[in-house]
Design a protein around this nucleic acid. Structure first.
Length: 888
DNA sequence: GCGGACTGCTTACCT
DNA sequence: ACAGGTAAGCAGTCCGCG
């Protein structure tokens, strides 16, 4: 079995919808692409100040929502000069709809459709059915309101229809897709009409692009240009306000219930991008002023209602409002508290949604949700933070610690309270202002790439972003969006077996490491391997197992799937062009010193955003929740990945290079010559169509027989540690510190001869650490294991791991523990074997033997690869132990 | 009733 | 609420043991 396709055999052009329809149906007229007729109605344009206007100057499209009262889509546009949000209500009479494969006559026969209270009309539309490779007439059922299509009551049109297409797309999303709106790009409104302000790429850029991609088909270059037209234009400076509230209750619960809102709001802090620093405090009996110096303007209110109205005033003044968990706490609390104090609903600028809380005439960004997003955590911030508390993220990203308070909020002095409250807003604002507003830019760039409104983007996961990007593309092409179950039934037969039980398909290949110390190691890797595979091997749900007889021999190795050799796949084109735009344009230019630092920085934002999308583009196809879930697509990608790496290993060996390790997309080569590396890279390019790069060169690498565990030392002595216990975050600092010391010693090793000295130093280090533990000479907090509680303690029903035991002990003491908390505990000799660090009274409780075991195994992971036997080298334990162990 | 061999659960990592 | 693959430690169970 072999892959017969390579780059040169790839189809150069995807047939347009027009081609397909002309070829495969006899319909002469195509209704799909028709723009919605703009019926100009009396102006429905409103500014954020509430007055109606007819025109909106150049402003950036930020968000789209649905206004139930007006029954229309509402667009939020941001004007940079005036620093305000303009609202524009759809006046084209755009209506919600879904599709049926039944002809109109039959739809009329379905009970409950045409007499549905929300029913408006039927239309015939022609779509391209990408699962069955033909044009298809569909009946469009148009409704008066979105709930009639997809309400949750059960008698919505999509539930009544035997089969409904495109019925799970929110009304405002449909609007963005169908109107081809470019989120994050400039628009203006003239005579109540929304007009895009086209951004033209400079000729110079066009010229360079055309030369970089001169060998690519025209259609491919069009995609590249499309991305650049979205990404070359910088985003506006976002004027914003960070808000945080404090509530004082008698009972201390972790988060007061906002729906009850029974305790008063005693402090609100505000930090604005215009320099505003303010804390608003509620005057209460018996509260002292306090002595702290607070770097903010302080305003007192005697009436809580007045205080809240003042806050509302600020919320309306700024176009963007930032909070941390404001969706579930701060904003709803303000809302319900205001209601409780008798504020009229229309005086409250806050809008409660099902899973969000928005600002009526502004844009609310809840940073909790955005920073919680795994893709953002991992790819944008390199896993610098692991907990999702404001303190932790602020500490990790800004070095801003929390203001410690040890007494309930109600007992703080005004100044203590102000300081405490202010800090949270400082962190929230700081998170968006660091690195020249990186986060704000990231949000807008991601919104542009994925056609996702900002208010959705900051609340949804990456699978939704990629979904939006792909649905938009379906609409552009006039493709019917496949129903999830049809996609799975037609394309979803998996043919590989996962190694891990319970997983759906086989993943990446890990090459068994050759244990020992290897000098002069080059690590080669396939840069963004999976996106490259998608691009080069034409991966897409519709190219997988296509309908052409002649493509059936184009087998994906290790599977029974074949890939189309005739038509370029939609996913392949989207992901492929995005990858190229990143690798060939934004990444090099983000480092190009001939460009201004401002431009470089912008290019860096764009390339990071692209990285976020690209890195997730494979995974989403294997995720059940993804709207275009297609595990066979994921399976094809990993299968080709294994094929690529395996063939490359064979080739390397045939070139006489020893491959000592490799994981998924990387190869560790032992002392290769320049020409061997070059030969391998050329071969990969030519035979596999894949770019192989030199990722890093190590002076030496220490391998054990364990996969995903190694230690690499660079020429300059820097040490890379991968997977070893000594670097895992949950292990005690004492052990981590000792491990790092060992790394320092290894970093100084230059030659094989140096190892002898290093071995001695390491043994000395080990002995010293051993004795410190035995003598009880280690501070307790350095002995704490810190393990994340992934569910609430009651959620562990099968086993009770140690950190859960510790958590339960905390709970017994009345300390609140919940999912996401990191439990600090030490190992003790008495009953359950563990004790939370808060409950430890003296070092004598510590189970020293357990710590010795841990120390030993941490060191052994490195030392057994160096062929050092810890016990024999260090001599028998009792000889150099100053304290007898407890069991002896 | 105890202990070793084994399996399964859980977390944290790698790409 | 993007994937699968790997290591490690512990919890819990099975089984033999006159």
């Amino acid at each position: 079995m072999s892959l017969v396709f390579n780059e040169k055999k790839m189809p150069s052009k995807t047939h347009t919808l027009m081609d397909f329809l002309a070829k495969k149906t006899n319909e002469g007229k195509i209704a799909v692409e028709e723009e919605h007729v703009e019926e100009i109605q009396p102006s429905k344009v409103k500014t954020s100040r509430g007055e109606e206007v007819k025109d909106i100057p150049l402003s950036y499209l930020i968000s789209a929502t649905y206004d139930g009262e007006r029954g229309a889509v509402c667009l939020k546009l941001y004007n940079e000069t005036e620093q305000k949000i303009y609202l524009w209500y759809d006046n084209t009479d755009y209506k919600p709809y879904c599709l049926s494969d039944l002809p109109p006559e039959e739809v009329k026969e379905v009970p409950g459709i045409i007499n549905h209270p929300g029913f408006q009309r039927l239309e015939i539309v022609e779509k391209y059915d990408s699962l069955n490779y033909r044009g298809k007439l569909m009946t469009k059922i148009v409704a008066k309101d979105p709930l009639s299509i997809g309400g949750r009551i059960g008698n919505s049109i999509r539930d009544i229809l035997p089969k409904a297409w495109e019925a799970d797309i929110k009304f405002h999303e449909n609007y963005v897709f169908d109107r081809r709106l470019k989120v994050g790009m400039p628009y203006k409104v003239e005579d109540s009409k929304l007009i895009p302000v086209e951004y033209e790429l400079p000729d110079e850029v066009l010229r360079i692009i055309k030369s970089i991609f001169k060998d690519e088909p025209e259609e491919y270059v069009e995609y590249v240009i499309r991305w650049l037209s979205l990404l070359e234009l910088k985003v506006p400076k976002i004027s914003r306000l960070a808000v945080d509230i404090e509530v004082a209750g008698e009972v201390i619960t972790r988060v007061p219930n906002p729906k009850e809102a029974k305790d008063p709001i005693v402090a609100v802090s505000l930090i604005g991008s215009d320099g505003l620093r303010k804390v608003i405090l509620l005057k209460r009996k018996g509260v002292e002023e306090g002595v702290e110096d607070v770097d903010a303007e302080i305003e007192y209110f005697d009436s809580e209602k007045e205080l809240i109205l003042k806050v509302f005033n600020y919320l309306e003044k700024y176009p963007f409002i930032l909070t941390f968990n404001g969706d579930d706490f701060d904003l709803p609390y303000l809302y319900y508290r205001a209601r409780r104090l008798g504020v009229e609903v229309d005086k409250i600028p806050i809008e409660r949604g099902r899973d969000s809380t928005l600002i009526k005439n502004g844009v609310h960004i809840d940073l909790y949700k955005f920073f919680f997003n795994k893709s953002i955590q991992v790819y944008a911030f390199g896993q610098k933070y692991r907990e999702n508390t404001l303190d932790e993220i602020g500490d990790a990203l800004l070095g801003m610690g929390k203001v410690d308070i040890e007494i309930p909020i109600s007992e703080l002095t005004y100044m203590e309270l102000a300081k405490y409250c202010l800090r949270d807003s400082e962190i929230v604002y700081g998170l968006t202002s660091m690195n020249n507003d990186l986060v704000m830019k990231l949000i807008l760039v991601l919104a542009r790439i994925t056609s996702t409104p900002v208010e959705d983007l900051t609340r949804q996961g990456i699978s939704n972003w990629i979904r939006n990007m792909m649905l938009y593309e379906h609409r552009v092409r006039g493709w019917l969006i496949p129903r999830k179950e049809d996609l799975l039934a037609i394309k979803g037969k998996i043919t590989t077996k996962a190694i891990i039980e319970g997983k759906k398909y086989r993943g990446g290949e890990v090459i068994t490491p050759k244990p020992g110390v290897h000098f002069n190691v080059a690590v080669l890797d396939f840069q963004s391997m999976y996106p490259s595979i998608v691009r080069q091997y034409n991966i897409s749900y519709e190219t997988l197992n296509c309908n052409h007889q002649e493509c059936r021999s184009n087998i994906v190795p290790g599977t029974t799937h074949w890939i189309c050799t005739k038509d370029r796949g939609l996913t392949s084109l989207l992901i492929g062009s995005l990858k190229d735009v990143r690798v060939k344009w934004y990444k090099p230019r983000s480092k190009d010193k001939s460009l201004s630092s401002e431009v470089r920085e912008w290019y860096n934002v764009v390339q990071s955003s692209l990285k976020v999308i690209l890195n997730a583009s494979y995974g989403v196809f294997g995720a059940e929740n993804f709207a275009l879930y297609c595990p066979t697509v994921a399976e094809a990608i990993t299968s080709i990945g294994r094929y690529v790496i395996t063939r490359t290993v064979e080739k390397a060996e045939s070139l006489g290079v020893e491959v000592i390790y490799g994981d998924t997309d990387s190869l560790f080569l032992k002392s290769p010559t320049k020409s061997q590396i070059e030969a391998l890279m050329n071969w990969a390019e030519k035979e596999l169509g894949m770019e192989l790069d030199i990722d890093r060169i190590y002076r030496y690498v220490v391998l054990s027989s364990r996969k995903k565990n190694y230690l690499g030392v660079y020429q300059d002595g820097t040490v890379d540690v991968k997977g070893l216990t000594g670097k895992k975050r949950h292990i005690p600092d004492f052990i981590k510190d000792a491990f790092m010391e060992m790394m320092k010693i290894l970093g100084s090793v230059n030659s094989f001869e140096d190892f002898e000295k290093a071995k001695e130093s390491i043994i000395e280090l080990y002995k010293e650490s051993y004795n410190r533990i035995k003598r009880g000479n280690v501070p307790i907090d350095k002995l704490a294991f810190k393990v994340m509680l992934s569910r609430s303690p009651e959620g562990y029903v099968k086993t009770t791991p140690q950190h859960v035991k510790a958590a339960l002990l905390l709970k017994q003491k009345g300390i609140d523990v919940r999912a996401g908390d990191i439990i600090s505990f030490v190992k003790v000799a008495t009953d359950p074997g563990v004790k939370p660090i808060q409950l430890i009274r003296s070092t004598s409780e510590i189970d020293t033997d357990k710590y010795i075991e841990y120390l030993e195994s941490t060191f052994e992971q490195v030392l057994d690869a160096l062929d050092i036997d810890l016990i024999s080298m260090a001599g028998s334990r009792s000889l150099w132990s100053f304290m007898p162990s407890k069991k002896q």
